[in-house]
Amino acid sequence: MATGGRRGAAAAPLLVAVAALLLGAAGHLYPGEVCPGMDIRNNLTRLHELENCSVIEGHLQILLMFKTRPEDFRDLSFPKLIMITDYLLLFRVYGLESLKDLFPNLTVIRGSRLFFNYALVIFEMVHLKELGLYNLMNITRGSVRIEKNNELCYLATIDWSRILDSVEDNYIVLNKDDNEECGDICPGTAKGKTNCPATVINGQFVERCWTHSHCQKVCPTICKSHGCTAEGLCCHSECLGNCSQPDDPTKCVACRNFYLDGRCVETCPPPYYHFQDWRCVNFSFCQDLHHKCKNSRRQGCHQYVIHNNKCIPECPSGYTMNSSNLLCTPCLGPCPKVCHLLEGEKTIDSVTSAQELRGCTVINGSLIINIRGGNNLAAELEANLGLIEEISGYLKIRRSYALVSLSFFRKLRLIRGETLEIGNYSFYALDNQNLRQLWDWSKHNLTITQGKLFFHYNPKLCLSEIHKMEEVSGTKGRQERNDIALKTNGDQASCENELLKFSYIRTSFDKI
């Protein structure tokens, strides 16, 4: 039985969820670079991206490699990797027998973001014989899940209580170790020597080791999670996991709180800001991140802002960003909400898709409305799209047979046209069989910064309504002859009103 693990408890099935942008060198404390989270699957090609990484700022997932063999891993080693800020997950990587050479110096898994409450997941690794993470000293947050690894031993010899604050939620089941077939031998045991430290858990006094050649490092209890030197002297209180010299914040392997210019500090002093819960960055760093993602459509890219001495992905609820200094300031009234469309555009074809934009005031991208039916549609669209004030790209209304009016965009005031449909149009209306009105132009103002209007096959939309939009939106004169079809717009509506004058002759039985 794995020490510190839980057996036999019912657990939810383990679901495996399925960018080499360097964020800056980590400095003297770390020998390499800070790398983003990685999802490495199918083959070993991307694994080489770990070569210079000291910190993975995010998670590391290595999974679904069915053609790899043990010899493929023999020359692979990433000794610079010290810390993973989120979680480490391995799933069905064939041929991998140990992690001792792959990650010989991995010391800390912070667990800032977890995989279903777990910071370390080893699942269905069919050839893994031992973990071998002999320098792993601290899992700051989260638990361990090690399950269905039929060859995995050296679990009962690990004292997880020396690595985690609590072992109650560890789930370590259905491994070879369960069948008591392992016969784990710690260093020196074969020669009758006791080389590794022994600890007591559940009444068992057991030597602690990761492999037959690597003991588990056990520091004096007084050192807590700070770690200790090879001689057993406690590291500085700002260290986490390990250090090369005692009581020196510049000799830590990793930091308990924050890293700044080669030393570990309790908090980031001005003019620095907390970033990702582990390091200090200056304003320029946060500003660069903001600008890199301002026009990016890459998933996970955030326009970072500053709030409460932190550089964070977005302002919290009730705050909006001051564009001059990136500071989050309290909103006066309802907060603006910028919604970034991942692929640059979004099609609204149902109430469900409209709900995804609920509360958005600025759309960074283009909207395509293609709704053919739905219950209580006008009210639903207004509830979900009615706060949109600005669209950076274009607005396209296409084959939306259920629409009679666009009044559900009740606050839309600006279409920038930074991206144009077919390279020309910022407003595009095609084949809307029941569209009769755009907006009530006596109450609604709309500016279209650039781009043209396109109207074709809107049989109940009168040309007068379209011409009014040209005047109000500032697009009059931009359109070419064929942009607004004269014969297919309003051709099934009563669009022309003329005053009919009647004269009559009164007659009676005795007068003409």
Score class of each variant (00 low, 15 high):
residue 28 H to Y: 03
residue 28 H to R: 04
residue 28 H to T: 04
residue 31 P to H: 13
residue 31 P to R: 02
residue 33 E to G: 08
residue 37 G to C: 03
residue 38 M to S: 03
residue 38 M to Y: 11
residue 38 M to V: 05
residue 38 M to G: 15
residue 38 M to H: 11
residue 39 D to Q: 15
residue 41 R to F: 14
residue 43 N to M: 08
residue 44 L to M: 04
residue 44 L to G: 09
residue 48 H to L: 12
residue 49 E to C: 07
residue 52 N to R: 10
residue 52 N to P: 11
residue 53 C to L: 00
residue 53 C to E: 00
residue 54 S to E: 06
residue 54 S to D: 03
residue 57 E to R: 05
residue 59 H to N: 08
residue 59 H to S: 09
residue 60 L to N: 00
residue 60 L to R: 00
residue 60 L to I: 07
residue 62 I to F: 14
residue 63 L to G: 06
residue 63 L to R: 07
residue 64 L to T: 05
residue 64 L to V: 06
residue 67 K to I: 06
residue 67 K to N: 05
residue 68 T to Y: 15
residue 68 T to K: 10
residue 71 E to Q: 03
residue 71 E to V: 04
residue 72 D to L: 10
residue 72 D to M: 14
residue 72 D to F: 04
residue 73 F to R: 04
residue 74 R to H: 15
residue 78 F to L: 10
residue 82 I to S: 07
residue 82 I to Y: 13
residue 82 I to F: 12
residue 85 T to W: 01
residue 85 T to I: 06
residue 88 L to N: 00
residue 88 L to P: 00
residue 91 F to R: 02
residue 92 R to H: 14
residue 95 G to P: 00
residue 98 S to H: 03
residue 98 S to L: 00
residue 99 L to V: 11
residue 99 L to P: 01
residue 100 K to R: 07
residue 100 K to H: 14
residue 101 D to T: 08
residue 102 L to G: 03
residue 102 L to P: 01
residue 104 P to E: 02
residue 104 P to R: 02
residue 104 P to Q: 01
residue 105 N to S: 08
residue 105 N to D: 13
residue 106 L to F: 02
residue 107 T to W: 03
residue 107 T to P: 00
residue 109 I to V: 11
residue 111 G to T: 00
residue 112 S to R: 12
residue 115 F to G: 01
residue 116 F to S: 09
residue 117 N to V: 10
residue 118 Y to M: 09
residue 119 A to T: 07
residue 119 A to D: 00
residue 121 V to R: 01
residue 124 E to C: 07
residue 124 E to L: 02
residue 124 E to I: 01
residue 125 M to S: 15
residue 129 K to P: 00
residue 129 K to Q: 14
residue 131 L to S: 02
residue 132 G to S: 14
residue 134 Y to W: 14
residue 135 N to W: 06
residue 138 N to G: 10
residue 138 N to S: 13
residue 138 N to R: 15
residue 138 N to A: 13
residue 139 I to Y: 01
residue 139 I to C: 01
residue 142 G to M: 00
residue 143 S to E: 07
residue 144 V to W: 00
residue 148 K to C: 13
residue 149 N to I: 00
residue 151 E to R: 05
residue 151 E to W: 04
residue 152 L to K: 01
residue 155 L to T: 11
residue 157 T to W: 09
residue 157 T to G: 06
residue 157 T to F: 03
residue 158 I to C: 03
residue 161 S to G: 10
residue 161 S to P: 01
residue 162 R to I: 12
residue 163 I to N: 01
residue 163 I to V: 11
residue 163 I to W: 01
residue 165 D to C: 04
residue 166 S to T: 04
residue 167 V to D: 04
residue 169 D to L: 07
residue 170 N to I: 07
residue 174 L to F: 10
residue 175 N to V: 03
residue 177 D to Q: 11
residue 177 D to R: 11
residue 179 N to M: 09
residue 182 C to I: 04
residue 183 G to Y: 05
residue 183 G to L: 04
residue 184 D to W: 11
residue 184 D to Q: 09
residue 185 I to N: 12
residue 185 I to D: 07
residue 186 C to V: 03
residue 188 G to W: 15
residue 189 T to V: 10
residue 193 K to S: 13
residue 194 T to F: 14
residue 195 N to C: 04
residue 197 P to Y: 06
residue 197 P to C: 11
residue 198 A to R: 13
residue 199 T to H: 12
residue 199 T to C: 07
residue 200 V to W: 06
residue 201 I to Q: 14
residue 202 N to S: 11
residue 202 N to W: 12
residue 203 G to F: 13
residue 203 G to Y: 14
residue 203 G to R: 11
residue 204 Q to S: 13
residue 204 Q to H: 03
residue 204 Q to A: 05
residue 206 V to T: 12
residue 209 C to N: 05
residue 210 W to K: 05
residue 211 T to L: 12
residue 213 S to H: 09
residue 218 V to S: 07
residue 218 V to A: 10
residue 222 I to S: 06
residue 223 C to A: 01
residue 224 K to S: 10
residue 224 K to M: 07
residue 224 K to F: 04
residue 225 S to N: 14
residue 228 C to Q: 02
residue 228 C to T: 01
residue 232 G to F: 05
residue 233 L to F: 05
residue 233 L to Q: 06
residue 234 C to K: 01
residue 235 C to D: 00
residue 235 C to L: 01
residue 235 C to M: 00
residue 235 C to Q: 00
residue 236 H to L: 01
residue 237 S to C: 10
residue 239 C to L: 00
residue 240 L to A: 12
residue 246 P to C: 11
residue 248 D to H: 06
residue 250 T to Y: 08
residue 250 T to H: 08
residue 251 K to Y: 11
residue 253 V to Q: 03
residue 255 C to E: 00
residue 255 C to V: 00
residue 255 C to T: 00
residue 256 R to M: 14
residue 256 R to F: 12
residue 257 N to D: 04
residue 257 N to Q: 07
residue 257 N to P: 00
residue 258 F to S: 05
residue 258 F to H: 06
residue 261 D to W: 03
residue 262 G to S: 06
residue 263 R to N: 04
residue 265 V to T: 04
residue 268 C to W: 00
residue 270 P to M: 13
residue 271 P to Q: 03
residue 273 Y to M: 15
residue 278 W to C: 02
residue 280 C to H: 00
residue 280 C to V: 00
residue 280 C to D: 00
residue 283 F to D: 07
residue 283 F to V: 15
residue 283 F to T: 06
residue 284 S to L: 06
residue 284 S to M: 09
residue 285 F to I: 05
residue 287 Q to E: 04
residue 289 L to M: 11
residue 290 H to G: 10
residue 290 H to I: 07
residue 290 H to Y: 10
residue 290 H to P: 06
residue 291 H to T: 01
residue 294 K to N: 03
residue 295 N to D: 11
residue 295 N to I: 15
residue 295 N to C: 10
residue 296 S to D: 15
residue 297 R to D: 14
residue 298 R to W: 14
residue 298 R to K: 08
residue 300 G to Q: 05
residue 300 G to D: 11
residue 300 G to N: 11
residue 301 C to Q: 15
residue 302 H to Q: 14
residue 304 Y to K: 06
residue 305 V to I: 08
residue 306 I to R: 01
residue 306 I to L: 07
residue 307 H to L: 09
residue 308 N to E: 12
residue 309 N to G: 08
residue 313 P to T: 09
residue 313 P to K: 11
residue 314 E to R: 14
residue 315 C to Q: 01
residue 315 C to E: 01
residue 317 S to N: 07
residue 318 G to E: 04
residue 320 T to Y: 05
residue 322 N to G: 07
residue 323 S to H: 15
residue 324 S to D: 12
residue 325 N to Q: 11
residue 325 N to P: 12
residue 326 L to Q: 07
residue 327 L to V: 02
residue 327 L to I: 12
residue 328 C to M: 01
residue 328 C to P: 01
residue 330 P to M: 10
residue 330 P to N: 14
residue 330 P to S: 09
residue 331 C to L: 04
residue 331 C to S: 03
residue 332 L to Q: 04
residue 333 G to D: 13
residue 333 G to I: 08
residue 334 P to T: 14
residue 335 C to E: 06
residue 335 C to I: 02
residue 336 P to A: 11
